[in-house]
């Protein structure tokens, strides 16, 4: 699949934003992050900025952005519609959360925060399901995709949260969460890659053409000599070597380095913690951009069976 920059940015940014919102709403009542309204507000604004930037970017992908509002109508069947609804709905408690903080209504803030956390999780789940429900794309229609989205959103949100809480002088809790989430994400990603590398194709040129009864099917002439929308959108192929090095970048830069930096922050603390965690957050986000890019680049669509036979 063609890694459209707007979508890659969208899932990374709003994923991190929702992750941040989620943890903020959830952990604040548990006292694991700084309790000051200022801290919460900073996190909240950051989260909403990322979410909004992501959503706006995703609209760039539309052929007809002015009609985007129509996308809320089909929540009964469409994960994309559900995502839209969830995203919009989540703004309500999120903004309520902020208002309660400003108005100094701690009880309401906690409740709104928790609701926002639920909204964030649901939204990310919906986003994930958009991809996970696409049967023609085997690398997406995969049991680890939705958990992966949640986990990565949580991980990147946590990395941000840790950075901000380090600003507020709190290091321990969030940073150790980074390590746990990061390790979990790393294991999940490794498992996912293993599985998609070895997985059976969902269909073959033989089944796509119904000609398998004759023998192996190879394309002879395409219907058109130049490209088209489908090929540009779905015909993208990444070289194995290239993919392997990008995976390494993701593992090292996106997971290992932030984990190590978080370890560093928890072990050394003090003046090191803030820059370590801030750098960790940046690396995690950058790593996830690459991961998301790969998520597309490594995905194959059955339509290419018709053109290249694979």
């Amino acid at each position: 699949m063609n890694p459209a920059p707007s979508i890659v940015f969208f899932t990374t940014a709003s994923g991190a934003g929702y992750g941040l919102l989620f943890w903020l709403g959830l952990l604040r009542p548990l006292g694991i992050v700084p309790a000051t309204p200022a801290f919460a507000l900073v996190c909240l604004v950051l989260a909403l900025l990322l979410i909004t930037a992501g959503l706006v970017s995703s609209m760039l992908h539309l052929g007809n952005p002015t009609r985007a509002w129509r996308a809320f109508s089909q929540w009964r069947s469409s994960w994309l519609s559900r995502e839209g609804v969830a995203a919009v709905v989540t703004y309500v408690p999120a903004i309520g959360f902020g208002a309660a903080l400003l108005a100094d209504l701690p009880g309401l803030a906690t409740l709104a925060g928790l609701l926002a956390a639920v909204g964030a999780a649901v939204t990310v789940w919906c986003t994930a399901m958009i991809y996970a429900s696409l049967k023609p794309i085997r690398q997406w229609h995969h049991p680890l995709v939705a958990p992966g989205y949640l986990l990565l959103a949580g991980y990147s949100g946590m990395a941000l949260l840790a950075g901000v809480s380090a600003l507020g002088g709190v290091v321990g809790g969030p940073a150790s969460f980074i390590i746990t989430l990061g390790l979990a994400a790393l294991v999940l990603k490794l498992a996912y890659w293993r599985m998609i590398d070895g997985g059976d194709p969902v269909a073959t040129a033989e089944s796509a053409t119904s000609l398998g009864f004759i023998g192996k099917v190879r394309p002879l002439d395409p219907p058109h000599t130049e490209s088209n929308y489908l090929l540009r959108e779905m015909g993208f192929r990444i070289a194995r070597k290239h993919a392997a090095s990008l995976r390494t970048i993701v593992l090292v830069g996106g997971f290992a380095a932030p984990i190590l930096l978080a370890l560093l922050a928890t072990q050394i603390g003090g003046g090191v913690a803030l820059p370590a965690l801030a750098l960790g957050a940046l690396l995690a986000l950058a790593g996830l951009l690459v991961e998301r890019w790969l998520m597309f680049a490594e995905a194959t669509h059955t339509v290419t069976l018709y053109y290249s036979g694979r």
Partner: peptide, 8 residues
């Protein structure tokens, strides 16, 4: 769109 294939 009309493709052509070789099978077997």
């Amino acid at each position: 769109r009309v493709h052509s294939y070789e099978a077997g």
